[in-house]
Each structure stands twice: as C-alpha cells, then as structure tokens.
C-alpha cells in the first residue's frame, strides 16, 4: 500500500508541479516587497521546503530584551527596526486603521504600557502622513518616526 501511494503521489506531483517552478528570492524591505516576491513560488507554498532560517542562538532573534538589568535607553530600537522592516504592509494597515495585531506586537516590543496604547494608536493614526510620507518610504524612516511619537505620549 505504501508503495502504491508513493507511486500515486509521484504521478500527481509530476502533473501538478510543472506549473509551480518559481524560484524563491530573498525578502527585502519597503511596501509590498514580501508579498511581491513571495507570490506563488514553490518554496513559499510547500510544506517541505525552506531555504533560510537555520537553527542557532542568533535565530531566536526577537528576544524579549530582559537579559540585562540596566537597559540602555531604547534598547529595543534595533528590534523595532527589524520588526518594522519585516512587517511594513501590515503595520501601515494597522496604523491607518488605528488597531490590529501588528500594532499590538510593535507595542509589546517597545514595552508600551497597556493603559497608554489607546492614545498611542490614535496619535499614530493621526500622523499617518508623517510616518508614511511616500510610497517609496524606507523602514528606517518609519521606525524613527514611530519611536519619536512613542516618546511623546
């Protein structure tokens, strides 16, 4: 039975896979980069394939930042930058809507106390144009603007 199934799947894969031979490329930054490059690529869809993310201490990258007792000011700046770069589209959507999981996650990284979040989200929403001035905006600009607004609340 195992053999039958193996042969069976070989056949269907052979038929169906021909249309999915698209190489995967690295994910960059800016609006739409991830979605654009990920579209229907073989590697992005299959259960089986991966080309990145090997397992090591550096890949536990989004650490919770509580290692040191004395934290430098904005010790999370780098994490914010990475998170913004990798979540640009969803973050812009959440900021425009004034709510959302991506925005909540960013606040978690910046350790914004929960009672301050409502007012933070409102001011981010009202300053959408400053944070995202043009379609070619870079993630550095976005994270700098966000961190400035966070400091003001």
């Amino acid at each position: 039975m195992k053999k039958t199934i193996v042969v069976a799947l070989a056949i269907v894969l052979a038929v169906a896979s021909l249309s999915y031979a698209v190489p995967k490329s690295n994910v960059g930054c800016g609006f739409g980069t991830l979605l654009f490059q990920g579209n229907d690529g073989l590697a992005s869809q299959v259960c089986a394939a991966t080309t990145n993310g090997s397992l090591g201490s550096q890949t536990f990258g989004i650490s919770s930042g509580t290692l040191e007792c004395s934290k430098p000011a904005r010790f999370w700046a780098k994490q914010v930058d990475t998170f913004v770069a990798e979540n640009m589209d969803n973050l812009a959507t959440d900021i425009a809507a004034g709510t959302g999981e991506t925005l909540d996650s960013l606040s978690d990284i910046m350790e914004v106390p929960s009672e301050k979040r409502a007012s933070l989200y409102t001011s981010l929403q009202s300053q959408f144009d400053t944070i995202f001035p043009s379609a070619q905006v870079t993630h550095e600009h976005v994270s700098t603007q966000i961190m400035m607004i966070v400091e003001q609340i």
Partner: peptide
C-alpha cells in the same frame, strides 16, 4: 519548522526527490 532544505526550483525533481 521542520522542512527539507533545497534550492530546487524544478517542481518535478522536487517531488520525486521528496518522495
């Protein structure tokens, strides 16, 4: 995630090798 590591872009080879 547990996954096969490959740069294979040909779907057919990918399928057969995976099996």
């Amino acid at each position: 995630n547990y996954a096969a590591v490959t740069d294979e872009t040909n779907g057919l080879f990918f399928a057969v090798k995976g099996l």
